[in-house]
Design a protein around this nucleic acid. Structure first.
Lengths: 224, 224
DNA sequence: TACTATTCTCGTACGGTGTACGATTGTCAA
DNA sequence: TTGACAATCGTACACCGTACGAGAATAGTA
C-alpha cells in the first residue's frame, strides 16, 4: 500500500491528489478558471469524472489546494540580506507567479482560510521584518501593506488587456483613445498620449510603487 | 413608445436594464456572485428567465454593467480641497463601496474594459492630481499606485473571515491560534497575540497604509 | 492459498446552469 | 386594417457539480 502510494505520487500513470491539483492548475492557466470543470479535468487526466472525488472532497477543496500550490511557487524572502532586498525578491516573485496564474487572484476574495504554504510564507516574511527591527505591530502593518501592494498590483495587471509595452501602444492608439472624447476626458487623453510616447512597462511600474512603499516603511523600524 | 419607455425606466413595475442590473447587484450582495443566476434574478424580478435577454446580451454583459454601477457609487474626489484630502475622501468611499459589494473585486480580474463610470472616476482623479502639481507621468504613477492600494486592500479585507475587532478577537483565540504550532510559527504567534491584545480594526489599518502612501507621494509633485 | 476488508474507479442520474430558437402577445405608424 | 417592431417567455440542449452505489483491484490475515 505504502509502496503503491509512493509510486502514485511520483509517477505519471496513476492518479493522486498531487497530480489532480497540478493538472487543474495547468488547465486553469490554459483556459481560465471558467474552463476548469471536473469533467474536463478528469478528461485530461484520462479518468472518469467521479474518480476525482476520491482525492478531493469537492470543487471548493480543489480550488483551495490550487491556491496553496500557487503560494508554494512564490519564493520565500532570502535570509542573508537586508530586509528591503528580501522583500523586493519575494514580492517580485509573487508578481511573476500571480501573472502566470491570474485566476488565482480572483479566487482569493472568496476563500478565507490560508493554506499551509500561505502560512509558511507569512511566517517567513514576519520573521524577516522582525529581525530587521520592526516592532510586532509595525511588522503587522508592513506585512499587510506589502501584501496589499502585491495583490492589488496583480489584480490591476490581470485586468490589463495587454502584456507588453508594444501591445499597449497598439491598443492605446486603436482602442483606448477612440473611446475617450478629448472634451470629456482631457486629462486621460493627455495621460494616454504621454504613455504612448514614453512607452509603458508594467515591470517598471511595479518597481516604482514597491520602492516608494519600501522607502516609506524604512524609517518606521527601530534602528538595528 | 417613448412615453412607455420613460415609464419603465422610472417605475418599479416594468422591466428595464436599470432594474435588471440593480436587482442583480442586490442579489449578489445577498447571496454572493455564485448565487446570482439568470433564473433566480428573473424570479425576484417576477419575470421569465429569457426576458432578461432583452435588456442584456448575456451574463457577461450583465456583470460588466453591475461593476460599472458599483463604480458609480464611489464618490468622485471633491474639488475644493488639497489633493491629499481629496484622495482620502475618494479612496475611503471606494473601500466602503467595495466592502458593501465584495463580489465586485473578484470580478475585476476577468473583465478588461472599463465602463463609463470607471472612466469618469479616473478622469476626475487624474485631474485632481495634475492640478495638484504632479507631472503627467507622475500623475499616472500616483493614480496607479492609489488604485493598487484600494483594490489590494479591498481584496484582502474581503478574504478576512471577520468584520469587526471583536469578531477578530474571538476567531483568533478559537480558530487561528490553534492552527499555529508555536514552534513552527513563532512569529505569527507573537503577532496574533499582540493583535488580540491591541485589538484589530480594518479601518485603522486602511488609514495607516493610505497616509503612508500619500506622504510618500507628496514630495513627488512639483511645487504649486 | 483463500477470505475479507479496504481502496479505488466510475456509470448513472438529479437538479442546477447559460442561452439558442421560435412562438406569442401588445403597441404603434401608416 | 395592416404590417412592423418591441417585449415576453416556454421549450430544449449542452453543460455543470456531485449523491449514490456497484464493481474491480489490491492489501492484510489466516
Amino acid at each position: 500500500m505504502s509502496a503503491r502510494k509512493q509510486r502514485q505520487v511520483a509517477s505519471d500513470a496513476g492518479l493522486s491528489k498531487q497530480r489532480v491539483v497540478v493538472e487543474a492548475i495547468r488547465l486553469a492557466d490554459r483556459e481560465g478558471v471558467n474552463g476548469l470543470s471536473m469533467r474536463r479535468l478528469a478528461g485530461v487526466l484520462g479518468a472518469g469524472a467521479m474518480s476525482l472525488y476520491h482525492y478531493v472532497a469537492n470543487k471548493e477543496e480543489l480550488l483551495d489546494a490550487m491556491i496553496d500550490v500557487v503560494f508554494e511557487e512564490i519564493e520565500l524572502p532570502p535570509e542573508g540580506t537586508d530586509w528591503q532586498s528580501a522583500m523586493r525578491r519575494r514580492t517580485l516573485s509573487a508578481r511573476q507567479v500571480l501573472a502566470r496564474h491570474p485566476w488565482a487572484i480572483g479566487l482569493m476574495e472568496s476563500r478565507t482560510s490560508p493554506g499551509p504554504a500561505h502560512l509558511r510564507h507569512r511566517e517567513a516574511v514576519t520573521a524577516c521584518l522582525r529581525r530587521a527591527g520592526f516592532s510586532v505591530l509595525m511588522a503587522t502593518h508592513a506585512n499587510w501593506l506589502l501584501d496589499v501592494y502585491v495583490y492589488g498590483f496583480a489584480l490591476q495587471e490581470a485586468s490589463l488587456p495587454f502584456d507588453t509595452a508594444d501591445e499597449f501602444t497598439d491598443m492605446a492608439k486603436d482602442v483606448f483613445l477612440p473611446q475617450l472624447p478629448p472634451d470629456e476626458f482631457p486629462y486621460l487623453n493627455e495621460s494616454a498620449a504621454a504613455l504612448v510616447a514614453a512607452g509603458y512597462d508594467p515591470a517598471e511600474e511595479f518597481m516604482f510603487g514597491l520602492d516608494l512603499v519600501l522607502a516609506a516603511l524604512e524609517p518606521l523600524r527601530a534602528a538595528a
